[in-house]
Design a binder for these strands. Sequence first.
DNA 1: GCACTATTTGGCTATTTTGCCAAATAACGA
DNA 2: TCGTTATTTGGCAAAATAGCCAAATAGTGC
Lengths: 108, 108
Amino acid sequence: MDARTQALFEARAKIIKAMAHPTRLFIVDQLSKTERCVADLTDAIGVDMSTVSKHLSVLKEAGIIEDRKQGVQVYYRLRTPCVLNFFTCVESVLRGEIQESIEPLKKS
Amino acid sequence: MDARTQALFEARAKIIKAMAHPTRLFIVDQLSKTERCVADLTDAIGVDMSTVSKHLSVLKEAGIIEDRKQGVQVYYRLRTPCVLNFFTCVESVLRGEIQESIEPLKKS
DNA sequence: GCACTATTTGGCTATTTTGCCAAATAACGA
DNA sequence: TCGTTATTTGGCAAAATAGCCAAATAGTGC
């Protein structure tokens, strides 16, 4: 793998890595409904606010979410909602569905 | 977040985590074209074969790929090609496209 | 200015992940 | 059986990640 390809896949991995944590997935799920401030998310998740803040900065750094300041509060929202499509595929992987397989259903 | 929700998002994260590495993304990309044996992939990637084998087992464990033994060789193929949809979204995140935003393009 | 609240940052430890090497396993043919 | 090749596994050290606490920063109102 040449350096150029390496760099491409590293850039891609960075985005997916940002999604690769239960808390961050939960945050994305929450933000798919409406924007939320850090305190809201902290209440919903139940870990230290500083931890939530760090998860948010990972997602923001990756370009998945963006923030908006309103007074002392910072509201986060989804920037690229297409990440929600991940869930659809993840669910079918979890259900163990084999796609485009020769044998879609084995009865025996 | 209650234990049930926690478990759900952990299960989801496990799948996404399996994709969250440049080498593993490269493998998935390779397997999207055709099935490949470990030696093929090792040549294409350029790391130790044992490392490739471990990456493959992560992907297999997650249910993303499956294998087929042919003599001494083990051929891997994509089990759930929907993971390729990740790339489409990842590319638009990389291009910095804001989706469903109030201001789709700022000219100033 | 001070006090108060919301959020971020720094620092620390614990845990997880990565990738190499060497050894083990498996399949094949002589 | 032995030798060879393809792959996996075990073990280890280096690096990355996670989450807590405490401290710093920022905004608001007095």
